[in-house]
Design a protein around this nucleic acid. Structure first.
Lengths: 210, 210
DNA sequence: CTGCAAACAGGATGACCGTCCTGTTTCGTA
DNA sequence: TACGAAACAGGACGGTCATCCTGTTTGCAG
C-alpha cells in the first residue's frame, strides 16, 4: 500500500532510479522464481513501472536479464564471497565465515532458493551466448579471487606442487553443488557438511608438509 | 523421414510404447532445454504422438515431468553413478571412472548441457513440492550409495571419526557444482579439476593413519 | 458377435506473455 | 520562452502454450 511520492498528479522523470527499481525487482524475481518463470507483467507491478518505461530502458527481456547478471549478480558474489574471503585472515577462515553467514541467513528466512549465479547459470548458459559469457565471467572472477587468497596464504610458508586454481575450483564447485542440494532438500544441512569438509581440506593442504 | 510402421492406415494401440516414446522425448528435452523451455508441441512432434494421446497418458505437463524424474532421471543416476561406483574396487576408483566416462562423453558431443538431475532440481524444486520430493529422493539415494561404498572401503582397515555421509555429500556436491561450472564455461575443465581433487581427497582420507 | 472401456485423433479455446506502437509529459538547451 | 530529445503512460497485437473437448478406433470381456 506504500504509494510512491508522486503525490498529486505530477510526474518526475527519474531514469536512474526507475532503472534501479526495475533491475532490483528483476534480480529478486529471477533469483527466486527463475528467469523464464518471471513475467514482465509482475516485474512492472513490483517496481511500479509502466510498459512504456520498461521498453524504453530495456527493449527486450534479455537486456534486462543481462543487466541483472552484470549489475546485481556480480555485485552479490563480490559482497557475499570475494570481499569477505579477501578480508579474512586465511582462506579457510574466510570460507568458513562465508558459509556461516549464508547458512544463518537461510535459516532466518524459511526456504532455500539457491545461489542466484548458479540458478541463472543452469537456466541460461545454453540458451544464449551473451548470457553464457556474462555468467562465465563471474565464475572466473570468483574462482580467481579464491586462488589469489590461497596464494597469499602460502606466501610465507610455500608448499610445493600446490595448484591454487584447482583448489579454488573445488571450493566454488562444492559450494555451488551444496547449494543445489540444499535447494533440493530445502535444508541447510548440505551446506553445513560441505563447509566443514572444505575447511578441513584447505587447512590440511595449506599446512606444512607436502 | 522414418515413418513408424503404421503402414497402411491401421492404428495399433500401444500404450506402453507410446508412453515410453513420450517420456524419452521429454527426458531429452527437459534435460537439455529445461522444463519450462520445452513446449509440449515439440515433444508431441518428437515422439510422433497426438494431443489426445498425450492428454490420455499425462493429464498435465507436471505429470509428465514427474514421470521423467522418477523413471528416467533416477535411472540415469543409477546407471552413470551408483552402479559403476558400486562395482569399482574402491570408492576413489569408482568416482574417477565415472568422471572420466562423463568427461569423454561430453567431449564426444560438442556442448555441456549439464547434469539432468541438477538442472531439474534448480528449476523445479521451489516451484512444486511434488517435484521437490521426487528430486530429493534421488539425491538421497545417490549420496547414500556413495556413503555405503566408503563404508565398505574401510571395512578392513577402519579409520576412526570417519563421517561417511559427510564425505559422500561432498562428492555429490562437488560433482554437481563442477557440472554447473562446466555448463557455464562450456568446458570440461572444471570436471577434470574436481575429479582429480576429489580422488586425491578420498585417497588421503581412506588411507591408514588417524 | 456385442458391448464397453481404454486408447487415440485432431482441433478448439482461453489464458498469458513479450513486444511494439501511439500519444503525452518532462527537462535540458539555446 | 521555444524546441527537441529523452522519459514515460497505457494499451493493442500477435504468437505461444497447456489444457480440454468431441469424436473415432482398438481390443478385451462376456
Amino acid at each position: 500500500m506504500s504509494e510512491r511520492p508522486t503525490s498529486p498528479n505530477r510526474r518526475m522523470n527519474d531514469p536512474q532510479g526507475l532503472r534501479q527499481r526495475l533491475v532490483d525487482a528483476a534480480y529478486v524475481a529471477f533469483s527466486t522464481r527463475g528467469y523464464h518463470s518471471s513475467a514482465l507483467h509482475d516485474l512492472k507491478r513490483d517496481a511500479d513501472v509502466t510498459g512504456g518505461a520498461l521498453a524504453h530502458h530495456f527493449p527486450t527481456k534479455k537486456a534486462l536479464g543481462l543487466a541483472v547478471i552484470q549489475d546485481r549478480v556480480a555485485e552479490a558474489v563480490e559482497l557475499t564471497w570475494i570481499t569477505p574471503v579477501k578480508l579474512a585472515a586465511t582462506t579457510a577462515d574466510g570460507i568458513q565465515a562465508v558459509f556461516a553467514a549464508i547458512i544463518s541467513e537461510l535459516e532466518r528466512k524459511g526456504g532455500v532458493s539457491g545461489c542466484p549465479l548458479n540458478n541463472l547459470a543452469l537456466e541460461l548458459s545454453r540458451e544464449d551466448e551473451d548470457f553464457q559469457a556474462a555468467i562465465e565471467a563471474i565464475f572466473t572472477r570468483w574462482r580467481t579471487a579464491i586462488a589469489d587468497k590461497l596464494r597469499a596464504d602460502l606466501r610465507a610458508a610455500p608448499v610445493r606442487d600446490f595448484d591454487f586454481e584447482a583448489l579454488a575450483t573445488l571450493v566454488v564447485a562444492t559450494y555451488s553443488g551444496a547449494m543445489a542440494m540444499a535447494k533440493a532438500s530445502q535444508s541447510v544441512a548440505p551446506l553445513k557438511i560441505c563447509a566443514e569438509q572444505l575447511t578441513s581440506i584447505i587447512q590440511n593442504k595449506t599446512a606444512l608438509g607436502h
